[in-house]
Design a protein around this nucleic acid. Structure first.
Lengths: 155, 155
DNA sequence: CGTGAAATTAGTAGTCT
DNA sequence: AGACTACTAATTTCACG
């Protein structure tokens, strides 16, 4: 973890503009960004560096056609635990499974909901087995995605 | 549309490696990537250019802390429909709600699962109302995310 | 905190094997 | 299709307002 817990997040209008630019093209040059937000290249770089250091910007990634990625099979999995399990413990269990794209504790019947992505159903089942292997996990309820209806980029 | 519909996607091991590198850091230099995958900078650039032109790489984005984005409240919503509803109809209904980040038809009890993100619980409820307003929607079952355990970027 | 110039490094285009 | 060279343009550092 790159230090500096979570101090209060201060971001002005310019930082917001820089992030907007980077969101539409993370490979944009600092000069190009500066021209839009009205700053010099070095000032933009300094701000971006700080946004990264503060954890506001978590990283720069590429959006890939899901069909190509070979991660065609997706599932939403409800997790039911035995007794009381702390979010910290859950985090440790789930972090070990790379197929897990997203997970969070939730309100309602289930203790957590997990989104998994794998090459095919077999790989998905194997990943699911790893989750179910944890002693604190009582059972799971899976819903495999048949067809994707909406796909907007997530933060 | 930048031409050339979807011909069969040919990607070799090297392309995969380049994308892996770009995924962990979309701002990585061509030289750095080449050093990992075993190619020269210019060869890497040529491949990246083609991956973008072919639509395999859709773009380069930045991952931003959701708390900062003002989209702190997230929910997983199961959708139960009245009678039989085609995926196309569902897509039309859900596309109109901007708070919906992801959605897909699924196996199991529910007809579809929807992921929503909003500023707060009130905004979330309003968005949910828009979904429930559709005549083909019978009822929904929501699970509001309490704490995020895993957050890996999605394709 | 932002600017501007200097030094460094990376991106780009052309050519050859 | 990849490597190499030369050229251009960007990033990065630093002293200054």
């Amino acid at each position: 973890m790159s230090g500096s817990g979570c101090r209060f997040l201060r971001m002005d209008r310019i930082d917001q503009g820089i992030i907007d630019q980077l969101r539409s093209n993370a490979r944009a040059g600092y000069g190009d960004i500066g021209q839009v937000v009205g700053l010099s290249a070095s000032a933009v770089k300094r701000r971006v560096d700080r946004l990264v250091a503060d954890g506001i910007i978590r990283g720069f990634t590429v959006q890939v056609d899901p069909k190509v990625e070979g991660l065609a099979t997706e599932a939403y999995v409800e997790l039911f635990c035995r007794g009381t399990v702390s979010p910290t413990d859950l985090k440790r269990i789930l972090s070990g499974v790379p197929e897990i794209v997203e997970a969070g504790t939730v309100t309602g019947e289930a203790d957590a909901i997990v989104i998994m992505r794998a090459r095919d159903v077999i790989a998905l089942e194997e990943a699911l087995e790893k989750v179910r292997a944890a002693s604190s996990v009582d059972h799971t309820r899976s819903a495999i995605v048949l067809s994707k209806l909406v796909t907007r980029v997530a933060g």
